[in-house]
Simulated scan of single mutants.
Amino acid sequence: MDDISTAIVRFIGHKEEDAQQLGWLLSNAANAKFSFEHTACLDNFIKNSHAQQGQVIILDLTENSENRFEAVALLGEKIPQTPVVVLTGDDEKIGRNAIHAGAQDYLVKSQLTTESMSRSLLNAIQRHQGHQRSAETAPLLDSATAVLNRLPIGVILVNADTKILFFNGKAKRYLEQGDGLAISTDRVCRATLPSESRALAKLLSDTLSPADATKTEGDFAISLTRMESDYPLNVMVAPIGTGAAGKGAVLFVSDPSEPVELSVETICKLYNLTPAEGRLALGLTNGYKLDDLAAEWGVSMHTVRSQLRQIFRKTDTSRQSEVVKLILTGPAALQATSLL
């Protein structure tokens, strides 16, 4: 738990004796300093309140009121930044119902102690802050997922137990095909062939182990045989994560037989190519030869070679391999639309 040197406690209730008891109990707390305030009117409190770091509300629900849970929901709506802990009588069911209505915790009046109340209030503040952080980071996670789905290769994240935590759209396609790479019933990433599955498991284990200075990048790559294709799936594994969330690994998966799904229009805009030159650049990227492309498009080799010279000039390259590398390592390699 984060250190909370001071917590502002605001008690909302009509009974002055309850306010005095709560204030006295909190004044004896050893694990935090509590600033205690009391107000009798919920509406006035909502009207005049403003969010403060380390603030928590104790809402009195001991009185028999039909709209007691509406008050909890109202506080959550009007002051969402502030956690609410309710004070109940001996009926703990009221406390549980209040949690369903949005409260962080509940206190039973007959069981109040300094230690239990202090712990409940501090936990409520921490729990509420965690919920807020989750709500704030959700859009960022959605954006990160969208970015990964635009990559032209498969991306699979696994935890320290090699169980799959996430896969992008391209990896989803490979896993659903179940040819070369698959998911076991316990969500462990495995290869189709038993021998290669053992090799992949060892590769992941080595990746998650302490760094070995004698290993090179080639030691963390593997080709997985596919029954339905003459080409294997190529997989490279890298470690990821070292913090409290634990260590894991990322698998980058590619299919050498799969056409590169790039936009001719994007290539043209990035490198100032004409549509014909962009089409030729994409054809080279997909491994086609000049004479094959000329025959397919019904143009002469002279025309294709002329277009290639223009591509060299505009991209400051001199070889076809340099053009291919330029395109595959540039922003054109990102998918224009989501694969999901």
Rank of each mutant, 00 (worst) to 15 (best):
residue 9 V to K: 04
residue 11 F to Q: 07
residue 11 F to V: 01
residue 11 F to C: 06
residue 13 G to V: 05
residue 19 A to Y: 13
residue 26 L to Q: 01
residue 45 F to Q: 09
residue 47 K to P: 02
residue 50 H to Y: 13
residue 58 I to N: 05
residue 58 I to M: 08
residue 58 I to C: 08
residue 61 L to Q: 05
residue 68 R to K: 13
residue 72 V to T: 01
residue 75 L to R: 04
residue 78 K to R: 14
residue 79 I to Q: 11
residue 82 T to C: 09
residue 82 T to F: 03
residue 83 P to E: 05
residue 85 V to L: 02
residue 94 I to G: 00
residue 96 R to W: 07
residue 97 N to Y: 12
residue 102 G to C: 06
residue 104 Q to G: 05
residue 106 Y to E: 02
residue 110 S to G: 09
residue 117 M to V: 02
residue 119 R to Y: 14
residue 121 L to N: 00
residue 134 S to A: 13
residue 137 T to R: 13
residue 144 A to D: 01
residue 151 L to W: 04
residue 152 P to V: 12
residue 156 I to S: 02
residue 158 V to E: 04
residue 159 N to M: 08
residue 164 I to R: 10
residue 168 N to G: 01
residue 172 K to V: 03
residue 172 K to S: 09
residue 173 R to W: 12
residue 174 Y to I: 08
residue 183 I to Q: 15
residue 187 R to I: 09
residue 194 P to A: 07
residue 197 S to L: 10
residue 207 T to I: 06
residue 208 L to V: 05
residue 210 P to C: 04
residue 217 E to Y: 08
residue 217 E to D: 12
residue 217 E to S: 12
residue 218 G to E: 13
residue 221 A to L: 07
residue 231 Y to T: 15
residue 233 L to M: 02
residue 236 M to T: 09
residue 246 G to H: 00
residue 246 G to K: 04
residue 247 K to E: 11
residue 248 G to S: 04
residue 249 A to D: 02
residue 249 A to I: 05
residue 250 V to F: 02
residue 252 F to L: 10
residue 252 F to D: 00
residue 254 S to A: 10
residue 255 D to R: 12
residue 256 P to M: 02
residue 257 S to P: 03
residue 260 V to C: 08
residue 260 V to P: 02
residue 260 V to E: 12
residue 262 L to R: 07
residue 264 V to L: 08
residue 266 T to S: 07
residue 266 T to P: 01
residue 268 C to F: 07
residue 269 K to Y: 04
residue 270 L to A: 08
residue 275 P to C: 03
residue 275 P to T: 00
residue 275 P to N: 03
residue 276 A to G: 10
residue 276 A to F: 12
residue 281 A to E: 00
residue 281 A to P: 04
residue 283 G to L: 05
residue 288 Y to L: 14
residue 288 Y to W: 13
residue 307 Q to H: 13
residue 309 R to Q: 14
residue 316 D to W: 11
residue 318 S to L: 09
residue 318 S to T: 14
residue 318 S to V: 13
residue 325 K to N: 10
residue 327 I to D: 01
residue 329 T to N: 08
residue 331 P to V: 14
residue 338 S to W: 06
residue 339 L to T: 14
